[in-house]
Design a protein around this nucleic acid. Sequence first.
DNA 1: GTGCTTAGTGGTAACGTTTCCACAAAAATT
DNA 2: AATTTTTGTGGAAACGTTACCACTAAGCAC
Lengths: 330, 330
Amino acid sequence: MTVNIKDVARVAGVSVSTVSRALGEGPVSAEVREQVQAAVRATGYKPNLSARRLRSQRTQTIGLIVADIRNPFFTAVGRAVEDAAYRAGMRVILCNTDEDPAREALYLTLMQEERVTGLIFAPTRATVDRLQADALDFPIVLIDRAGPGGQFDTVLLDNREASATLVDHLVSRGYNRIGGLFGATSTTGVERRDGYLAAMTVRGLTGEARFAPPSVEAAENAAAAWLRQPDRPQALLVSNGLFLTGVVKAARTLGLRIPQDIAVAGFDNEPWTELVEPGLTVIEQPVETIGREAMALLFQRLKTPDAPTRKVVLSGRCVARGSTAALPRA
Amino acid sequence: MTVNIKDVARVAGVSVSTVSRALGEGPVSAEVREQVQAAVRATGYKPNLSARRLRSQRTQTIGLIVADIRNPFFTAVGRAVEDAAYRAGMRVILCNTDEDPAREALYLTLMQEERVTGLIFAPTRATVDRLQADALDFPIVLIDRAGPGGQFDTVLLDNREASATLVDHLVSRGYNRIGGLFGATSTTGVERRDGYLAAMTVRGLTGEARFAPPSVEAAENAAAAWLRQPDRPQALLVSNGLFLTGVVKAARTLGLRIPQDIAVAGFDNEPWTELVEPGLTVIEQPVETIGREAMALLFQRLKTPDAPTRKVVLSGRCVARGSTAALPRA
DNA sequence: GTGCTTAGTGGTAACGTTTCCACAAAAATT
DNA sequence: AATTTTTGTGGAAACGTTACCACTAAGCAC
């Protein structure tokens, strides 16, 4: 049997309440605190967090629900969230949904059962719409993806702006026939598509946007099909880091050179985008900031539950590399 | 206040015990079960997991302590562990130590406080030595890194063999002066070094092994320093995926061509190793298998606590690519 | 010195479950 | 028909904490 607070009390020669106070808050004489600490060391006592949570009604736990931790974007955000949480004495429950609404629902009820203090969530389009703030009894901060009409605190990239930046960049390098490949399951994909189309229109160009399911294979297939067309675009704007992998693979398989045969610009400044030859032009997302900011929003919300919801919109940084080298004048 | 089992009992018109049985195990009439389920739906009851864990003394939680989830190797293993765990109705607590023994100690006590059912752990050399199986009251499965003398269930790569495979591969391609760069904090690094040196000796060659702290920057610096030497090696054997990034960067910075100026072979078949030009020759680790196998070992241990400890040694797969193209005959 | 606060302590009632026990009714066995 | 087993149910005691209350002793202001 494991040792509990009663055992510590007996060894220290004080009451249970005193032990509890000595280990936490509350007035305790220096002398007694000493004794208690000695007793803790002697017995090897480790407080039972389940009991503590039950009694205190404070779980000190926050949930983090993302699509897939293998996506470096979420990995980085996750690390930032975790670091911030542990620094604040909280734990993190991490869940991967693989963009599956059923699993999202599953994990949402799990969060309720765990009585989490708050939740950081990157939902699919399907669930974000049916998400009711008042149905859950903990605050939610959305990351990466927006919900409808200011119902939730949110931190995300300025996706429209970022897409526009890439379009401008490509146009300034001489590309006109630019296609866009976007993720089908997230609002992020939609926003980036919108920004792309708007920027194209402003430039007097017509864009063509396609969507693909969120996997490397799907992106590779979609890109391959597109690039095999005789009237294939000169450049491809690619919605995220996973897709970039697929697109580069497709280009390699088809024997197309980047950027001579097909220029590529995308999102997520992963380490390898610099190492590939030529380097890929990307929008770098401030991943650490996103994670930290999400935690900050969450803590703020817990402190002032009735404050108006806030939306933190961060700008991406365009990192120009060889994959969008200037087109030789025709 | 949130609704509890008592409320459900009142609504269903039965006792608390009956509700508990209806939701879990135990003989309950079909009729009553129906009523209870209706009451659960009506009230929106969600069981309190802290209370359940406290009372039942079963936390259904397993811990996963790794160095850094941003390392794709651990990300992939983590996903596999998590999937297996959730499928078995268990939760996972994920912790990143950044190879810091102090944080390892911190998280180990956290695991005790959480009363985890079991732990999957990739420890540093420093802590694995002072880890006492009997000091913790839950079973531990080590992954990626070995402990001393069969004290723990373990699943890891056959690192010596893998290093030898790479050496053989390089030698068969005509390389003789081969250096090795290894991670300083893990037993894995040591084992790979040993395998490398042994294989070199067998071939009648003398190896030179260097160690670096576990970060891309450290690896890049170490590689750069090495490659700047006039008598630099013809080929570099690189201990892990993170280091590979650093080494390729260093080569690029110094303007060295791969493989003409420096051949590269390493560990971890990350997607980008195929996309970089030339592709990198690597040992692919069976990451999903490692995660699944670790969970299997853990469950087995829980079922039969006194069975002898087992060590699952998996073989890597050598993926040959352009970074180790055959040396032109001198 | 009398009242009034405050620091320090112990006893005990929660927190929301599950599980043990007792018991009645029904079913199965003799 | 008498006994034993099984099935279904409710009451109440845990699980290991914290938080509330009551109390003493000491300090302080007057």
